[in-house]
């Protein structure tokens, strides 16, 4: 009886984790019931082998070394995109002239995959940190800019009138109404930007780097070290999920004044 109520109460959790556990178990057991042909076996690995590889790479310091390089590029690129994207988004939201002047670039860059610029960035900045930072920046800046802009544009006219009626100047208007109103948008933009930034790091390191987790994946693939590839993929997966959840947490905390949390899809 008690077990049954426990199951209904935690149904979503049980089913969710259960599915992942079963998937991993099935994957692990493939060699037990199916003998892979030689050619395929080269590309196959199991979760336990991936875990072993992870442990080894952790011990010999490989992961730490690559992680550090990737983290620097990620943080620098994302930081730069915040520093540029937020003020520009605010300005574009408040100034119609600036909006009209920049709109063609923002719209077309945002709609096109920024990754195509990678070869040019490598040509200009060489193999190394700078071409990665630029490509991370190019990916992350637009969601931040566009969301900030949308937040500013979405300000309720009545609230603006209320604040103006108390004689507020442009700066007070910004502080009291425009910024708080944009905050949920900015955080949602940050969530998208993090995804784009990680994509930038991965792809940037595939081609424009001799270090970093992306490089580790690419070079392992060329040497048929499939377990190492999955170690890299799993690290990126874990980082993305953790960062996304952290921002969602921030989103729901900041939105405590809202009747319901902002739409996340």
């Amino acid at each position: 009886m008690k077990l049954k109520t426990f199951c209904t109460e935690h149904e979503s959790f049980i089913l969710g984790t259960g599915f992942i556990v079963i998937l991993l178990a099935l994957w692990e057991s493939v060699p037990l019931w199916y003998t892979l042909p030689k050619g395929m076996a080269l590309f196959f690995t199991t979760p336990s082998k991936v875990a072993a590889a992870f442990q080894q790479l952790l011990i010999n310091g490989e992961i730490e070394k690559h992680f550090y390089v990737s983290a620097i590029a990620f943080l620098a690129g994302l930081g730069l995109s915040i520093v540029v994207g937020l003020p520009l988004g605010l300005l574009m939201g408040r100034s119609q002239t600036l909006e009209a002047l920049l709109d063609p670039y923002v719209t077309s860059f945002n709609a096109s995959p920024r990754i195509v610029w990678l070869p040019l960035m490598i040509l200009w900045f060489g193999i190394g940190i700078w071409s990665k930072i630029v490509i991370v920046f190019a990916g992350a800046v637009f969601p931040l800019l566009i969301n900030t802009y949308a937040g500013v544009k979405n300000v309720n006219r009545v609230l603006v009138n209320v604040v103006r009626s108390f004689g507020a100047n442009e700066w007070q208007l910004m502080k009291v109404v425009v910024l708080p109103n944009s905050l949920p948008y900015i955080i949602a933009g940050l969530r998208l930007a993090i995804g784009r930034a990680i994509l930038g790091v991965v792809v940037g390191e595939f081609f424009g780097s001799s270090q970093g987790l992306g490089y580790m994946i690419a070079s392992a693939a060329t040497n048929y070290k499939v377990d190492v590839v999955f170690v890299g993929v799993a690290i990126f997966m874990a980082l993305s999920v953790i960062l996304t959840l952290a921002v969602k947490q921030l989103e729901s905390r900041l939105a405590s004044w809202r009747p319901e949390t902002a739409k996340t899809f």
């Binding site: 979503s12 969710g16 599915f19 998937l23 994946i217 392992a220 993929v233 997966m237 993305s240």
Partner: peptide, 23 residues
Amino acid sequence: VEYALDPFLTAMYASPLVALAPL
């Protein structure tokens, strides 16, 4: 089905699956 698939698919969606490109 939602309960079973949501965590897995959400994790996949949030991940840079492009990392699997070389493989």
